[in-house]
Design a protein around this nucleic acid. Structure first.
Lengths: 341, 341
DNA sequence: CAAAAAAATGCATGCGCATGCACCAGTACA
DNA sequence: TGTACTGGTGCATGCGCATGCATTTTTTTG
């Protein structure tokens, strides 16, 4: 029972268990491998010995041999954008259910993944999910090392990596179309940070569709996905443009909420009576009664599920070709915009 | 240049580099260890060879020898409670700056850490930060294995682990005192989930202080830290109590925001004119103009900094005694409650 | 310029486990 | 009773690196 090994806190190895159980080290090892050939008797002896000694297989040593660490890296930007915690939580739980550990790399800004990558290479993760921008060179490094990479809402120009995406353009176009068709004549677009492809795609698609449908009075305001940039945007619009447009399209929900708050509390305007506001993402607060945002919800559940599956498939069979899965967003007809005609 | 090793994608080892550089494997190894004795000439030869081959030391193999994985586990519950993403982001960045990798364990409910722990033992992490409830037995396992454990806003009954905490009771008492002193006569307390110690502490301290100051008309409502539970609470209060009290104390900001929204949009009441609402945490949305919550902000920056430091100290010197650091929250006098007189 | 001290290097070894191989005990069948 | 299997088992080996020790090279010093 209270064995010496236990008391000393010195790590228990498979040899210790083997000795105690009266079998060989290989037998112990096999007991921890599914489908290995071990008799019930041996298995039981080992189980008891292991329990008494408090043995757990050393995953590090195992990884060294099997070349599989059973862990993946998740690269995520900016957890203060409320969209990402949801993604992260789901990825975490899904991987965890599959017995895969998650190494977290939370970036301060999208583009400084270099550090994370360096660590990733050293750490021998089995694969990577990246919700951040990587350079072509960085992406090439993945194929050189034969490490599966799945982008989340990002992509590489030349299909050299797999990806799951929400169709940013489609969603933005739906919103833009709805706004024009319900009679809005002028618009502001609150943009994302310059290094965010997602932001750019939404912004460009929004503008293009608005113009396509005949709207010419469009002003674009810099932003960074934050509440604060949304709240500050109205004053910037006034500076730049003189008056508030009919509609404000924000590249994400957080900034849309900032816009709404600023309109209501700093400019005494009504949403959507005076101004329509739309966002993008469908984060939790978008549904709060205060905002009831008209937005496009990304199907995070299906997207994370797909990302996890794609990555695991490619870990198990590195030969599978790259694949890109694009999901349509779901229009949430909230009450922050007049959309229905 | 475009070496065969590269093309084949087969991993480059220190032996490969050694051969290419014309030195021994040990020399290569020493080049990657700070403070090791290597001549500038050798170092340069190795650097060039490593670069040409694309060599990165294998952290797994290194860990096997050094018994240090340079990684820590972070156990966190429920990322949908907006408080935790902030904590996680900060922990991630702080560890990352120190060259330590973070293994994320995102729990679905506070108390199912068993799975995570199993993985943690196998994975040989150097230490653990836990923002979740662990059983005494689980905590004992940490000392048996000599793995440093630092609780974040949790603790063990018998000081068998280190901890950083925000003083929940103090914060709750400050709020309760403020409410009574500014003339509130009745209150509801929206509680947290039953397995959350943090929630219980806040709830109990709130109630105790209210009663201590003479308030007797107090109703308690079950909750779970979510916006939804806050939004649903008003109806529950009416069911249970018949009328809405002067003040509603919520154990966290998310539920407080739900309460405010429900009061305003479902019951046509004004906050704080008709009802005062207070929260706890100081999460991002608490500052949004829509809410401007009266709350106690936890000094997350200092708390995470302390947690990281405490853990690293104990990894480097396991003999250091346990320590508990308690931080005071900061009263944020928003406008969701009449507090100032 | 020789002797002593210091720095640099290589050799050999082992961390804890998984796995190919040879071997042994059983069971099936003729 | 013998031959051919099958499932179980142990032995030996190596994953990629760090590190103690012995050895060689360089530097320092009298």
């Amino acid at each position: 029972m209270a064995d010496i090994e236990k008391r000393r806190g010195k790590p228990v190895t498979s040899y210790d268990v083997a000795k105690k159980a009266g079998v060989s080290q290989s037998a112990v090892s096999r007991c921890y491998k599914a489908g290995a050939s071990v008799s019930a008797k041996t298995r039981e002896k080992v189980r008891i010995a292991a329990e008494e000694l408090g043995y757990e297989p050393n995953a590090i040593a195992r990884s060294l041999i099997t070349k599989r660490s059973n862990s993946v890296a998740v690269i995520i930007p900016n957890l203060t954008n409320l969209y990402y915690p949801e993604v992260l939580a789901q990825l975490g739980q899904r991987f965890s259910k599959r017995g895969i550990r998650v190494l977290l790399f939370a970036l301060e800004t999208e583009s400084d993944a270099e550090d994370a990558l360096q660590q990733i290479w050293q750490y021998q993760v089995d694969g990577v999910i990246a919700a951040a921008k990587l350079s072509e060179k960085q992406i090439a490094e993945f194929s050189r090392r034969k490490k599966p990479l799945v982008f989340y809402n990002r992509h590489s120009n030349d299909h050299s990596a797999s990806a799951v995406c929400c169709d940013q353009a489609e969603g933005a176009e739906t919103l833009a179309t709805g706004l024009v068709e319900s009679g809005h004549n002028s618009a502001a677009i609150i943009c994302g940070p310059p290094d965010s492809v997602v932001g750019q795609e939404r912004e460009q698609a929004s503008e293009a569709r608005l113009r396509e449908l005949g709207m010419t009075d469009i002003v674009k305001i810099d932003g960074d996905f934050s509440y604060e940039c949304g709240a500050a945007a109205i004053d910037k619009i006034l500076d730049k443009h003189g008056n508030i447009p009919d509609a404000i399209m924000c590249v994400n929900d957080m900034s849309a909420i900032g816009v709404i708050d600023s309109l209501r509390f700093e400019h005494d305007l009504k949403v959507p009576d005076d101004v329509s506001v739309v966002g993008f993402d469908g984060v939790g607060p978008a549904n709060w009664l205060s905002f009831d945002l008209s937005t496009v919800r990304q199907p995070v559940g299906r997207m994370t599920e797909a990302a996890v599956n794609m990555l695991i498939e490619r870990i198990e069979n590195p030969e599978i070709a790259n694949e890109k899965r694009v999901f349509s967003g779901i229009l949430m007809e909230g009450t922050s915009a007049r959309l229905s005609g």
